[in-house]
């Protein structure tokens, strides 16, 4: 346990002991890297019921993604217990007095890996195709679920035109946060407005950030937890599929979506699991939108890093390195003379 984290751990355990009315002791706390939208800690406590692993997610001083913690927590509650594995949500604490900022607590899913790079080594080598199959099967199953039956329509809007709503929102983020002119992003926004698809008949719970790195897999090739639901919303099923296939998630590998499977294979798995046939014309729109949304997030993180209180390196990496890559992907997708050096042609 790093000594600098012990005071936070002790305050957290005091809170838990009071809340759960049982004597608990802190046996470990470590910060998990990559928590761009929340500070994330793995905490271990001992008590009368034995040892427990918990995940503490505390609001940061500044965030990569501006999200509502309550919406995310309620989404975990709605999805937990369905076919989509997620960590069990235990506590949402919005009173900042306990740990300086609001936080949530989940039960830890132990013994798993999230980085696709781990698939190159034992014990995960040989699992690439199996995990890819599970990844897009689960996403298809999510798309097949009725958001009303899931209960999320009680706290999420159901848009009349999901594509228009998402475009308006993310174009607004770029307008608000760009620190200098963004010619590729603006060209993409104009393209998306000109080619706006008709609203699809289907609505589903959209995860909003379903990509390699945001799920936990084990050594048997099973996905044990889908994480980071902070951008979840009700929308078009094609949105998550297109986002999951964006070339950025497998960078610099272009042919394997998310570093796992060829794109057409991933789509076929998703179609079987969802029972939805992909409308290819609409899907072209969602692929361009996915790259624009990514660019909007990176542009926003630049603004956060420059003007915000947090100087987390991940904000600067997103703001500079990811912006560079996403610009190249978008340009590859829209330039009429593209040689597709960074992104395969739109499907």
């Amino acid at each position: 346990m790093h000594p600098a984290l012990a005071p936070l751990g002790e305050r957290f355990v005091a809170y838990l002991s009071d809340r759960w009315q049982e004597p608990l002791t802190l046996t470990g706390i470590e910060q998990i890297p990559g928590g761009a939208s929340r500070e994330t800690y793995r905490v271990r406590v001992d008590g009368p019921g034995g040892s427990r692993g918990l995940i503490l997610r505390r609001d940061p001083v500044s965030s990569l993604i501006d999200t509502e913690r309550a919406l995310e927590y309620r989404t975990y509650q709605a999805v937990h217990g369905t076919a989509i594995p997620v960590p069990e949500p235990l506590i949402l604490e919005e009173d900042p007095s306990h740990l300086d900022r609001p936080f949530s607590v989940m039960r830890e899913i132990a013994g798993c890996e999230s980085a696709v790079a781990a698939l190159a080594q034992p014990p995960f080598d040989g699992l690439r195709e199996r995990i890819g199959e599970r990844k897009w099967s689960l996403l298809g199953q999510l798309a097949a679920m009725d958001p009303g039956q899931l209960g999320v329509t009680g706290f999420m809007d159901v848009p009349d035109h999901p594509a228009r709503r998402e475009l308006d929102y993310w174009a607004g983020v770029i307008d608000a946060d760009a620190l200098h002119p963004q010619p590729v992003a603006q060209a993409a926004i104009r393209w998306l407005r000109r080619h706006l698809p008709a609203p699809s008949a289907r609505r589903c719970l959209v995860h909003g950030d379903y990509r390699s790195g945001n799920f936990l897999f084990d050594a048997e090739g099973e996905i044990r937890g889908v994480l980071d639901w902070e951008m979840a919303h009700v929308g078009d099923p094609l949105e998550d599929l297109a986002w999951s296939l964006d070339p950025l998630w497998g960078w610099p590998e272009r042919t394997l979506a998310g570093g796992l499977l060829p794109r057409e294979q991933a789509i076929a798995i998703w179609q079987r699991a969802s029972g939805i046939e992909v409308d290819r014309e609409a899907f072209r729109w969602w692929q361009v939108f996915a790259s624009l949304k990514g660019l909007a997030i990176w542009i926003s993180s630049t603004e956060d890093f420059v003007n915000g209180q947090s100087k987390e390196p991940i904000l600067a990496v997103a703001g500079w390195v990811m912006t560079d890559r996403q610009n190249r992907i978008l340009l590859d997708r829209l330039d009429p003379a593209s040689t597709h050096d960074y992104a395969e042609p739109l499907l």
Binding site: H2, E30, Q31, P33, G34, E312, P313, I314, W320, V321
Partner: peptide, 18 residues
């Protein structure tokens, strides 16, 4: 001594490279 510190060190190195 921690994965968090190692990850941040890697990101800072990447930024220095940029």
């Amino acid at each position: 001594s921690s994965t968090y510190a190692a990850a941040n060190t890697g990101m800072i190195a990447m930024l220095l490279g940029a």
